[in-house]
Nucleic acid binder design. Sequence first.
DNA 1: CACACTTAGACGAACGTTCGCACGAACGTT
DNA 2: AACGTTCGTGCGAACGTTCGTCTAAGTGTG
Lengths: 344, 344
Amino acid sequence: MPKGITLKDVARHAGVSFQTVSKVLRDEIKVSPDTRARIEAAVAELGYKPDTAGRSLRTKTNLLIGYSWKPNFQSKANPILELFLRSIVQAAEQSKYHIMLFPYCIQDDMLTAYRDLIRTNRIDGFILSDLNYDDPRVELLLELDFPFVGFGRSNPEWEFFYVDVDGRAGLRMATSHLVDQGHKRIAALAWPLNSSVGEARLNGYLEAMQKASLPIDKDWILRGEGAIEFGYQATNTLLDLPETRRPTGIVTIVDSFAIGAMRAVTDRGFIIGSEIGITGFDDSPFVQCLSPGLTSLRQPIDEVGQITIKLLVDILSGNQPEERQIMLTPELIIRGSSLGFKQH
Amino acid sequence: MPKGITLKDVARHAGVSFQTVSKVLRDEIKVSPDTRARIEAAVAELGYKPDTAGRSLRTKTNLLIGYSWKPNFQSKANPILELFLRSIVQAAEQSKYHIMLFPYCIQDDMLTAYRDLIRTNRIDGFILSDLNYDDPRVELLLELDFPFVGFGRSNPEWEFFYVDVDGRAGLRMATSHLVDQGHKRIAALAWPLNSSVGEARLNGYLEAMQKASLPIDKDWILRGEGAIEFGYQATNTLLDLPETRRPTGIVTIVDSFAIGAMRAVTDRGFIIGSEIGITGFDDSPFVQCLSPGLTSLRQPIDEVGQITIKLLVDILSGNQPEERQIMLTPELIIRGSSLGFKQH
DNA sequence: CACACTTAGACGAACGTTCGCACGAACGTT
DNA sequence: AACGTTCGTGCGAACGTTCGTCTAAGTGTG
């Protein structure tokens, strides 16, 4: 109940020096069973908890991990942020760490903010989301030799720890699934070229098409930013193709594109599923409520979070993990949007 | 570039004692223009930033704010979490504060976790989301006299600082809007009784009905937890009512209920808008992509975040703000789901 | 020119912890 | 019985900051 119980209070209670208490609590020295018992009793009775600032001052660590992510605008909310946050917070807690938020906006002085954070010993390590090619954060942290783990990949030549979901395998699964349903002409809605995540996913589509020996029309691969609107417009473009070249299946690298696609398909009088098959990516919380439900790839977010934290905590405690890159596989959740195809 | 620039380094550079540097930087004492200039030059040249731990050890404050929210499951993701997080992080940054995440799960030992956080001087204040009646967090923080600001309300007899969006006014607006469209029989999908947020919103519905002199059938008010499924089932229950008692309008206190409702309406062969009008709450990022788009109430989240932080920072710096409770009004975004009603 | 009075800045101490070394007692070994 | 070796603790110092007191000049007054 009383605030500010320190090592000295515990020590007085247990009849030893406060330094001894400190060492016993951290298992740094062996003491007689008797004194250990006395110390533990005193700790329990007084409810002692070590003060963060004092510890931090000596050890330069403060059990705080920064989480850097790129906040999105209203229209393209991150469907997995909440899940990921919960996952890393819980995992961190088990190792006595906490998570500090640190959004990444594109500003000139953003990197100095990161520098300051590191220099003032505020945090012990970083977790970075939404990585891109030539990501300045990665560059900076590598240069400063500051511990961090990425969720996602950046430049292949940069050596750093990351966990990623195999989007390539994911789109292979989605594409093959459409192939299995009987689709021959399959289009893909992708991100611009500078997105490493997007390129990996698109490659999965290419591989699956090749494996099925299906030709790919150049006009079937459309790239865009934004969200639903792009999916809508791009799909209209696809449906404008002459019937012999018009795709019957559309894989997308993000759910919002798929939602736009579904809407365009419906607006043009086609029937989702039986005439045009569609798949998404992320299995956003709301895609199961579309009708028909959207077939989508669910990322094992909880697992990603746990592994990310485990990697970082291992690094921080000095045990360099062996695996620097960990790849997890998404799960294809099949719903109506890709089922019931009837060939003509 | 070199790590660990301390006050002493700056002092040596400027030819004064390090304590003087500290005081000058904090404007605690007046010094000659010359020494001040020398100090500032040294700070700039060396790139000095005060160490958090050292400061924290003395002052017991560490410019860290805990954010406590209730993480949801996959199916009922919080549509405004990302917006709110971005808002509070940015606002906090301007006052040199950072945000630490602290999820609130219902566990026995949860409160001791909060206690420990406070006792070890980890954070200076709390921001609490997802408040309920008899919220144990509020009770604890009031008892410990620890600074916090709530986003939302709890028991009226508890005196504490909070910012809230006037859900009552919101549902008044939504209900009146349906009345304006010509609806006479309007139902409401609400949360269980223990939700203070939910009750406030429901009261807005009741008030608007009363103001329009419309009777309320007991069977029109349905309460449930969960998300889309409840909206779906509840709406089916409503549509099962005999035609003379069957509602033509449905207001809901959260978008996910509305989505379930839209689906049920469609499945039962009714037409959304012209036969059954529906409104949601939150204006979740995806509701504009439903067809028809869902009329919904948008909360001024960014403003909420800024005000919340401002309140807390003011409290922490010793200036008790005058207004303890601040209420903001949501905005009704009208889309197809509530338009085009044709009376019989 | 002696006096109090302001001013600029120095200085020791403290916050709560961890680290490294010292030291006495008990122990086993020759 | 004399001698290293462990074992169980104590103790001074340090981390970087802020706080309160103190001093040595400079400033005005009679």
